[in-house]
Design a protein around this nucleic acid. Structure first.
Length: 311
DNA sequence: CTCCAGGTACTAA
DNA sequence: TTAGTACCTGGA
């Protein structure tokens, strides 16, 4: 009914691969509640989305019409033209985009990304979601919406106060102690938050080193937090899939040192490795059975320079 | 049953 | 510095 639709705000965002954006490898705080309908949560709100292929309809609760949140989360201020121009010049990314439609990077809450990707390690996507849900149910605030109780993402405080045994009840396995060290780290390093406020590409290595101080955060998880929680655009977290695809598409050795692969892909996608990586990651993991055996011609050439002639 | 999953810490050479 | 391995847990 159109009456129902009027409760929602709308944005023009044609051609999105929303399933992959919300239920793929970026965020673990969304569930699909209907055909092209999604419900997500963060630390203080629920977000409901509907999508018709062109317009994204959204609403926030309990604070209604929180445009600031949506704007930040979907990075509506980011100009995608130059990004797409650069990354689609790479044939592998272009093929991925043609198969998947448009994937936008989400800018999530820093702490949510922090804990989510600590928990994500050595796990599959559905299991990560399940474990984060457990964590929210046990430690997150409750919120009522349409007669149902939902759980929000826990605060650092509540996670810090949690005992190891309680955390383990969320079926986090050996990551329970990592969550604990993470919470302690955030609670005890207020200076770190001030550092985050002026997060620019210059201090990327500094933040990264801080993150890796945490027991349970290594190269890959640190990079995920930098991309999804802090909005760094030129990092491709080198996980299992990253290694597979960089080897398959660009001929680099799959078991090369993390730092080597990291530098290579940063240089290759000059500025937008995270955006390119998202396409490659989702496309490759969904089509791996076919891709694996393809004798794909390897393109190891650097992207052509595109002088951005503005008109 | 075995193997693996958007890795990391620990140990031994 | 580098290679090898255990690790919680659930699903295939």
């Amino acid at each position: 009914m159109s009456k129902n639709k009027q409760e929602f705000n709308e944005i023009d965002l044609p051609g999105l691969a929303l399933d992959l954006m919300l239920l793929g490898g970026q965020s673990f705080c969304w569930e699909k509640i209907g055909d092209n309908e999604y419900l997500g949560f963060d630390k203080d709100s629920l977000i409901e989305l509907k999508y018709d292929g062109n317009k994204l309809y959204w609403q926030t609760y309990p604070e209604l019409n929180n445009k600031t949140k949506i704007k930040q989360y979907f990075r509506l201020d980011t100009d995608h033209k130059p990004i797409h121009e650069l990354i689609f010049a790479d044939n592998n990314v272009k093929i991925a985009q043609q198969n998947l439609q448009t994937i936008r990077l989400l800018k999530q809450d820093f702490e949510i990304a922090f804990f989510s990707f600590i928990i994500s390690q050595n796990n599959s996507l559905p299991i990560i979601r399940y474990r984060i849900k457990n964590l929210c149910q046990k430690f997150g605030n409750q919120i009522e919406y349409k007669g149902k109780i939902y759980h929000l993402f826990p605060s650092v405080e509540s996670l810090m106060k949690a005992s190891l045994a309680e955390l383990s009840e969320c079926k986090l396995g050996y990551r329970a102690k990592y969550v604990k060290s993470g919470a302690e780290f955030l609670a005890q390093n207020k200076a770190f938050y001030t550092l985050l406020k002026k997060a620019d590409t210059k201090i990327e290595p500094v933040i990264r080193e801080w993150l890796k101080e945490v027991n349970g955060i290594g190269d890959k998880v640190a990079d995920c937090i930098l991309v999804y929680g802090l909005g760094y655009d030129n990092i491709f977290p080198m996980d299992l899939w990253g290694r597979r695809l960089i080897s398959k598409y660009y001929g680099l050795p799959e078991k090369a040192k993390y730092e080597h692969l990291r530098k290579w892909i940063k240089a290759h996608f000059r500025g937008y490795a995270a955006w390119a990586g998202q396409y490659l990651f989702e496309y490759t993991r969904l089509n791996w059975k076919d891709i694996k055996n393809e004798s794909k011609k390897i393109s190891n050439k650097p992207l052509k320079n595109r002088s951005s002639s503005h008109k």
